[in-house]
Amino acid sequence: MRDLQNQVIYVVDDDQGILDSFDAMLGDDYPVVMFNSGTKALDVLQEKTPTLLFLDIKMPGINGIELLKSIHEKGMCTKVVIVTALPQDSYEQMARQYGVYKYLKKPLDVDEVEGITRNVLH
């Protein structure tokens, strides 16, 4: 059970289209949990530790960078992959500071997402 729980992938994005596309990409092969706000994800992360977390930056309430910072400060072993539509490079530098695993820019490439997921989960 514990092992299975560790294999969970979280996707945090306020855009329904992005959540739907992650479901299409990974939902068939992995346990994927979707959150449409950073606040909700943070609540769950108090108790649970997913293996992989796809995280959007621009969200109402807690944004992705703040959530990443929080995970980093807690010393969680979750691999965080930022997925953002924002064009500014400054966010990437910030994300690197907080130990981001990968920094992906939208539109996403299916192969890249699948490759990262495979690498992390196996």
Binding site: D15, G17, I18, D20, S21, A24, M25, K58, A85, L86, P87, K105, K106, P107, L108, D109, V110
Partner: peptide, 15 residues
């Protein structure tokens, strides 16, 4: 605009 277009674009591209 980039942000607002890339999100739906990303979804479309994925599908």
């Amino acid at each position: 605009m980039a942000h607002e277009i890339r999100n739906p674009l990303s979804a479309i591209k994925t599908f």
